[in-house]
């Protein structure tokens, strides 16, 4: 009888030890697997669980949660967790990663000044990958703030830190050269004056042929009508009858040509930056 009782107790002890509750290490292993498989929602929850239940590498887990939210495009939450990762971390390298992540989240929300401010916290001795990312994000921030020369210098520095990548600095140079010309090429003020002198010409200068023709025909038609009125009635008759129409469409056309030129500059700048970014993005952002 006693033997039976002892056997029972020993088996009970063994099974109890084997069937333990899952610990935080298991949770992190599971979360890592989900993260690597791209299941970021599940991964973020499990990393959160590990963080809450005292997983020792809090900086790593917070960073991973932030990365999950970045992939899920929830940038505000991502920013919160990058901040936590920064606070929890004792290593400069990890802190730099957190800063890069936070800056990226801010830039995705088009908060360019805050992005630049975040980069001021950058720690010394970053590795080359971090340095490349640092200049890349700084370049984008300056672009957002329309400081093209500062942006150009930042993009040019990236190639220095990414020798393994084939970054063509010539593309960067040529695109920035184009960017510097867009303001002159599509000068909104010039388009405005041109439309004042010859209706529609401002639109033509911005490459908007249909809008230019439309404006030219409309104002031209109104001029012909006023000439006809002058012929039939008198000069003042023509002024009184047609002036309000001309005032509306003539001034409207001038304003429109200015707007077209401005949006053309924005569009061209955007296209050039896309080329620069595609060419210069460090590996982690590709």
């Amino acid at each position: 009888m006693k033997l039976k009782i002892y056997c029972f107790l020993i088996i009970s002890l063994l099974t109890n030890t084997l069937i333990n509750g899952q610990n935080v290490e298991d949770v992190v292993t599971f979360a890592n697997k989900q993260f690597n498989e791209g299941n970021f929602s599940i991964a973020s929850k499990e990393y959160n669980r590990a963080l809450f239940f005292g997983y020792p590498d809090r900086d790593f887990v917070a960073q991973r949660i932030a990365d999950c939210y970045t992939y899920l495009e929830q940038y505000e939450l991502a920013g919160d967790f990058y901040d936590r990762a920064y606070r929890f971390s004792v290593s400069d390298s990890m802190k730099n990663e957190a800063i890069l992540g936070k800056t990226f989240s801010l830039l995705m929300e088009e908060k360019f000044i805050l992005g630049l401010r975040e980069l001021l916290n950058y720690k010394e001795n970053p590795n080359t990958s971090q340095q490349a990312s640092f200049h890349f994000l700084k370049g984008i921030s300056y672009f957002g703030l329309k400081n093209d020369s500062a942006s150009y210098h930042e993009f040019m520095k990236i190639a220095k830190f990414t020798p393994q990548q084939s970054i063509d600095t010539l593309i960067v140079k040529s695109e920035f050269k184009k960017i510097s010309r867009y303001d002159k090429r599509y000068n909104p003020q010039r388009a405005y004056v041109m439309s004042g002198l010859i209706p529609g010409s401002g639109q033509f200068a911005s490459g908007e042929i249909t809008a230019g023709l439309n404006s030219m025909l409309l104002i031209g038609g109104l001029y012909l009508i006023s000439l006809r009125f002058m012929h039939i009635y008198s000069f003042w008759d023509a002024v009184l009858a047609v002036f309000p129409w001309i005032q509306r469409y003539y001034l409207g056309g001038m304003e429109h040509s200015k707007q077209l030129a401005t949006s053309k500059i924005q569009h061209k700048r955007y296209q050039s930056y896309i080329k620069v970014i595609e060419n210069s993005a460090p590996k982690r952002y590709r």
């Binding site: 107790l9 009970s12 002890l13 030890t17 333990n20 509750g21 899952q22 610990n23 935080v24 669980r49």
Partner: peptide, 20 residues
């Protein structure tokens, strides 16, 4: 004593179930 020891030991080693 052995009986109590065997009953208590598993609980000492068993970890809190974080899913409870």
């Amino acid at each position: 004593f052995i009986f109590i020891f065997l009953m208590v030991i598993p609980n000492l080693f068993a970890q809190d179930d974080i899913y409870d």
